[in-house]
Amino acid sequence: MNSLDLWELRQQLDAAKILICFNGPLSQSIIEQLGLAVKRYLEAETLDEGRLYDVFAVYIEQSQNIQNYNARKAAEGVPGVVWRYDAATIAIGRADAEHYLVTSGNPVARADLPALTGMLDALAGLDAEGLKTRFREQRRKPRSEGMVNAGLGLIDMARKSSRPLEYQVRDMDEHTAYFHLIAVI
């Protein structure tokens, strides 16, 4: 018998104040439908439309970054890939009484990690004005440069978050790591 205990999983999600959680391969329609659910939920509980769209935007940028990364890896035709890079875990919930949490995890090729974590570390040191400047520079970079769009998404998330973006990296196998991104809005 399968050992997954949904009741236990549910209790864990409740304890972490998670409102919506998804695990599996992402598609545009899943991203859209989860997004609508997030919007409806926030509409019911906050009157501040700006904040609603901040949470929504961070959710969209996180999930689309994962989807675009998967498309890029598929185009590269990486040999011997066992993991689906779009096999994502996404959770939206409350960080505390005043803040929301948008967090996601997905497999990332180890070779791609330094650029990603390097950018996040650099962003963590910037204030609002610095992030704005970075955003304006990045949006002018040609799309052909590998991580330009993903980078723009990260800066946008950082601008909408109330504290620096955090991440965790865990080993999956010798070529792949599980990358976990945490944004508090």
Partner: peptide
Amino acid sequence: LTYVNTGSIKSML
């Protein structure tokens, strides 16, 4: 436009 993602911002530019 109510919400514009970063990819669309590049195209808008």
